[in-house]
Write a protein that binds this DNA or RNA. Structure first.
Length: 56
DNA sequence: TAGGCCATCTGGTCCT
DNA sequence: AGGACCAGATGGCCTA
């Protein structure tokens, strides 16, 4: 059970890593906590929404 | 040294 | 029954 849980968490961490790479203006080697990654991704999405709305 | 972040373990709950 | 998911606890590491 431990081993599986560890593997599951590794997958989660990798996903955070991938999410980080999708964020613009964030250099690939930047240290970013998971929380920061989440917050930046969230604000980026908000930004994108504004852009889309503006172009209507 | 306090606070933030992380990985890990563990027990409980939900799903298949 | 067994695996996936989740949340709480714990300990180590790093930085302001």
């Amino acid at each position: 059970a431990n081993e599986r849980e560890r593997a599951r968490m590794r997958v989660l961490s990798k996903a955070f890593g991938r999410l980080k790479t999708t964020l613009p203006w964030v250099p690939a080697d930047t240290k970013l906590s998971k929380l920061d990654t989440l917050r930046l991704a969230s604000s980026y999405i908000a930004h994108l929404r504004r852009v889309l709305h503006y172009e209507d």
